[in-house]
Amino acid sequence: MDYLAENLIYGIECSMSKFTKTEEELAKYILQHPEEVSQLTISQIAKKLHISAATITRFCQKLAFSGFNEFKHELKRSVDLQNTPIHMKNLKNVDYFAKLYQDHMGIIDHTFQITSYEDIQKAVSLLTKAKKIHVYGIGSSGIAAHEFKSKFFRIGLSVEAITDPHQSMMDAALSNRDSVVIGISISGTTKEGHSRGENSEETRLTDLGFYWR
């Protein structure tokens, strides 16, 4: 299922181009009257809009739902979340899966806003030509580094995920013009505590000889 609760309305809006004229009319009605539709049966909607139940089912399937019942369930959750007071958003009874999905969609949207098609093409060119791809991620960013390695390894690219700060410095020293180095970081700095009880050491990105965001 592609959309969850709060993101369902946004998902419908983004899918307009793949709907038929009748399905588009249905989508517009849902966007204008989500609470009403969440209370109706498929037969009631079909009669109200003078369309077939099969059309409604196809509409739901184009949104990656198995059928109207599953779609209606998510629409009801969407309506409930929209009616939740702002100060209640962080309480446990709020749908955290929907919030997580929305946060990730926000990250993707922001990425497309600051990234041009030329940037993506340049990155693709560098990755496909590289003899070795090095992905650095320290701390929690190391999880993303390993995920990067897993995804790109499956399409035949040679990727090495480095999650230890000392190893990353050694690895960076061995990189050459045929290498592509990718750094993953949220804060820009990472504090690493030594297991032997020594003072913690702050590893800055610039210590590795390059910057990343």
Rank of each mutant, 00 (worst) to 15 (best):
M1V: 12
D2N: 10
D2M: 09
A5E: 06
E6S: 14
I9D: 02
G11I: 06
G11N: 09
G11S: 08
I12Y: 05
E13L: 09
E13D: 04
C14Y: 06
C14W: 05
M16T: 04
S17W: 01
F19H: 01
E23V: 15
K28A: 05
Y29M: 11
Y29V: 14
I30N: 02
Q32F: 15
H33G: 03
E36S: 12
V37L: 04
Q39K: 12
L40E: 02
T41C: 04
I42N: 13
S43A: 10
S43Y: 02
Q44C: 10
Q44A: 13
A46I: 13
K48A: 07
H50K: 15
I51Q: 01
A53W: 01
I56C: 07
R58N: 07
L63I: 14
L63F: 10
A64R: 12
F68K: 11
F71R: 05
F71E: 02
H73T: 13
L81T: 09
L81D: 04
P85Y: 00
H87E: 06
H87Y: 07
N90D: 05
L91T: 05
K92A: 08
Q102M: 12
Q102F: 15
D103T: 13
H104T: 06
M105N: 15
G106T: 07
G106K: 12
I107E: 04
D109H: 15
H110K: 10
H110W: 11
T115H: 06
Q121V: 04
A123N: 05
L126D: 11
L126G: 08
T128S: 03
T128Q: 00
A130K: 00
K131V: 14
K132Y: 01
G139M: 11
G139Y: 08
S140V: 05
G142A: 08
I143T: 13
I143C: 07
H146S: 11
E147G: 07
S150F: 12
F152V: 04
F152T: 10
S158F: 01
E160P: 05
I162T: 09
I162M: 04
P165F: 00
S168R: 00
M169C: 00
M169Y: 00
L174S: 01
L174G: 03
S175N: 04
D178W: 09
S179T: 07
V180I: 03
V181F: 00
V181P: 14
T190I: 06
E198S: 08
N199Y: 06
S200Q: 09
S200H: 12
E202W: 11
R204I: 03
T206L: 06
T206F: 09
F210R: 13
F210W: 08
F210Q: 09
Y211W: 05
R213H: 01
